[in-house]
Amino acid sequence: MEQTQLNVKQFSADSFEPLIHAERESREKIVAPSLTFLQDSWRRLKKNKGAVISLFILIAVAVIAFGSIWVSPHDPTKQNVKYINLPPKIPGVSLDGFNGTALIGGQRVDKYAQANVPEQVHFYLGTDGLGRDLLSRLLMGTRVSLIIAIIAALLDLSIGVTYGMISGMKGGKVDNVMQRVLEVLSGIPNLVVMILMLTIFEPGMTSIILAMIVTGWITMARIVRAQALKIKDQEYVMAARTLGESSSKIALKHVLPNISGVIIVQMMFSIPSAIFFEAFLGFIGLGLRPPAASLGTLLNEGYKTFRFLPHLMWAPAITLSVIMVCFNLLADGLRDAFDPKMKD
C-alpha cells in the first residue's frame, strides 16, 4: 500500500508548472473559423455526396447543352431522307447496339453500309425517322428543359418573392386582397391555364412561358409571405423601423437576407416541376412544334416507334430522368444545408 503511493517530496519544485495561464488562453480561443451564412451552408452541402454529384452533373449537362449551340455534332433540324432510322454508331465500340448494326429478320445487318454512309460520319445515338441526328436533337431538347428551369427560377424570384414580400410586409387590407387573389389563382390548375394559352397562341415556348407566368410563382409567394410575417416582428426589424428606415429598405436589407435560404430551396423545388410540366406537354403533343425539339416531344416521337427503334425513346427518357433526379437531389441537399432543422 505504502509502496504504491508516490512521495511528493521526491519531486523538485521546477518539475511543476502553473496551469491557470494556459487554461485561460485555450478557453478563450475559438477553434472553428468564423463562417458566413453561405459559407456555412456550402460546407454542409459539400458533405452531401448526392447533392454535390448532382450539381456537377447538372453543370456538365448545361455546358454541353448550351455549348452545342456552336459545336453540334450534326444540324439538329436537318432532314436527310437517305439516312433514316440509323442505329447508334460510336467509333471504336463494337458492342451490338452501338456499332451501327441492327437485327433484321434475325440477322445483324450493317445499316450504315446499307445507307451508304461515308466511313467518317457517325451518328452516336442514331437518327430518327426523318434522318435527323438524335444526339443533336437531344442536346437541343435538353437546352429547352434547362431554359424552362431558368425561367421557372426567374419567375419565382421576380414575381413570387415580390408579391409575397409586399403582401407580408404591408399586412392589413393590402395583404387580405392579395391573398384572396392568390386563392383564386391557385384554384386554377396550371394545365387549364396552358390550354387557355394554347387557344390564343400557337403551341410553343411562348404559350408555355405565359402559362408559367400566370401560375408558376404562387407557392413561392405564399412561402415568402409567411416568412415575412414571421420576421416582421423580430427585434432587429423593430429596431430598424424605430431608427426611421423605410419599409422597402427593411424588406430588402433585413427581411430578404434572412429568408434567402427558404427562397433558394423553394426555387430549387419548383424547377423539377417546371421541367416535368414542359416535358409532359411535349409528350401529349401540346409542347414545342417541330422542327424544334424538347425532351418531351422527343419522347413522344420515340414512343411511337419504341418497339422497333427503342433507342429513340430511351435516350430522351434517360436524359430527362437524370436531369430530374439531379435537380431533386440538389434541392434536397440545399434544403438540408440551409436549414439543418428541416432535415428529414
Binding site: P310, M324, N328
Partner: peptide
Amino acid sequence: AILGRSIPNFVFAVLLQL
C-alpha cells in the same frame, strides 16, 4: 422516393408496358 418523384409518370408507364 426520389426516383418516384423524378421519373415522369409517362416514362414509367412506358417502362411498365415494355
